[in-house]
Design a protein around this nucleic acid. Sequence first.
DNA 1: TAAGATTGATTATTCAATCTTG
DNA 2: CAAGATTGAATAATCAATCTTA
Lengths: 181, 181
Amino acid sequence: LHSERSLSSPSPERLAAWRLFLESATALIDVMDRELQDASSLPLRWYDVLVHLEETEGGRLRMGDLANEIVSSKSGLTRVIDRVEQAGLVRRERPTGDRRVVEVVLTPAGLEALHAARPGHRHDIERYFARHLDDDEVRVLTQALRKVRDEVRHIRAANGLPDGTRTAARRAAGRGSGAAG
Amino acid sequence: LHSERSLSSPSPERLAAWRLFLESATALIDVMDRELQDASSLPLRWYDVLVHLEETEGGRLRMGDLANEIVSSKSGLTRVIDRVEQAGLVRRERPTGDRRVVEVVLTPAGLEALHAARPGHRHDIERYFARHLDDDEVRVLTQALRKVRDEVRHIRAANGLPDGTRTAARRAAGRGSGAAG
DNA sequence: TAAGATTGATTATTCAATCTTG
DNA sequence: CAAGATTGAATAATCAATCTTA
């Protein structure tokens, strides 16, 4: 583990960058979700589920892995998959090996729904996001955000996903302020 | 109004940038919110409310303006302010001029809570976000996200905030696909 | 006992309808 | 009627406890 004692308060420029990041992300997610639902009746979260399944070998993922991918608590994902399954876009399967796990499998209807929604959604990505970025900005943004995402995922994984009976000791460990002195 | 017909699908690089943006934003907001609550019992949303009030002349904002700032529906903000007020961090006031509006006013306890939470939160911003960005990346990120944020805010404002009896016609207008042919 | 996932109860958010003032 | 904000009903998300299999 690396020390955190040397961390100081961010410069004003960095604070401003964070606020811009937070504001633009919140607003973008809101707008993209509304557009997607207006056009295709798919919540952004569902779309995300379908995309992750489509990109996986055999179009299937375990609940836990999928929760990790889409940044959801385990119980949160259970409810989401309840609805997506009810809509017929995925189904649950129990693999023969370890009968504790549940795999989420993309159905033909789910793949179709994804393909139907995709052009409109990509249009929105272009309109609200990509259009404003030149090639250089895309490069820098990608490189920077990759580091941020990897770090935060690592933290989330180390702390255990939400739902996981997060004890007081574990929360403290997660925050890194574990010393009593 | 500018035409949208020329918009095409984003390049693979831009699609990847969008996904990184979405994933890092979701994960970051989740982690920052948990840390803030662990350390200061303040949800990130509350913190945001307090910050916006602190930065305003007289520490007060109308409900509608505040909803716009923190990207919330009007009714959503009503519930949030219910709780924040219940906690004593803000209070509601009706200005003498137009008695339809409600102003949210920062209380001394609210200011104190903000100041108490701020160092830890800034530490988190450094740890999870700012630390990964060099000066050049901060500059590019800031410039790029400012354009994105302004565009999306403009769209949200033009469509009217959520809650505003969004008719089918208005939704279509918002999406810009108004032609029947 | 632990891993993987779900459930019950609680809390938070949204939509549509409503209330109040201009 | 329109602007500003709130409310009731319905949805969604969360936490802690539970169930099942390893």
